[in-house]
Simulated scan of single mutants.
Amino acid sequence: SVTIETPTTGGALQTDRIMIRPDPYQAQYLPEVRWSEELPVMVQTLMLRSLEATQALRYVSRRPLGAGGDYAIVTEVTDFQAEIAEPDQPVTVRLRMTVSLVRESDVQIVAARSFAASAQSPTSDITDLIGAFDAASDTMLRDFVSWAVGALGRRL
């Protein structure tokens, strides 16, 4: 069984607001638009649902609701934003997370990997941006699930 810990993030991502970066040193948020949950919980939910959908694991849970598993998935989300290079130019949605697979019995990291994905949005319109976030997260989650199931399969 696997427990997915709530991901950690930097302070700017510890929110339910959708972050945009007009330049690498500045973080802003889209006005009047929010994720359905704070970003770490939303990413945890997406990871959990993606792993459950494979039906490759006996049990997938989250803390604090789930019991301790054989393995824990510990994640740090470092990028989850839209980046605006120039006005009237496509917007890049950039996602990145580092994931560790930890054996619960001795708290040893048995596998680790970084995942990244990006997608272009033709405009900064919220509908276009959400489409780009969906495309990038689908790619990143697909890569994560393939890696996690493979890494767990070698240990179970």
Rank of each mutant, 00 (worst) to 15 (best):
F144L: 14
D16F: 05
M47F: 07
Q14F: 15
A56K: 13
L57E: 13
T54I: 13
A53M: 13
Y29R: 11
R96K: 08
P31T: 15
A116G: 13
P24K: 07
Q55S: 09
L13T: 02
V110A: 02
S146Q: 10
E32A: 14
R113H: 08
A12E: 01
L129A: 07
V41F: 09
G66A: 08
Q26A: 04
Q55V: 09
T92C: 00
S36N: 07
S61G: 13
I109A: 12
A135Y: 00
L48V: 12
P22D: 03
G131Y: 00
Y59T: 15
L39M: 06
A82F: 13
R63H: 13
R62Q: 13
M97K: 00
Y29E: 11
V43K: 09
S61I: 03
R17Y: 14
A136T: 03
V60S: 10
A116D: 11
Q108F: 07
A72H: 06
T98M: 00
Q14W: 05
P122F: 07
P22L: 02
T45V: 13
A148D: 03
M47W: 03
Q44P: 14
Y25A: 03
A82Y: 08
D128P: 02
A117I: 01
V74R: 01
P90I: 03
P31W: 10
V74N: 00
L13D: 01
T54C: 11
P64V: 09
E52T: 12
G66K: 04
S36G: 10
W147Q: 06
P31M: 13
W147M: 09
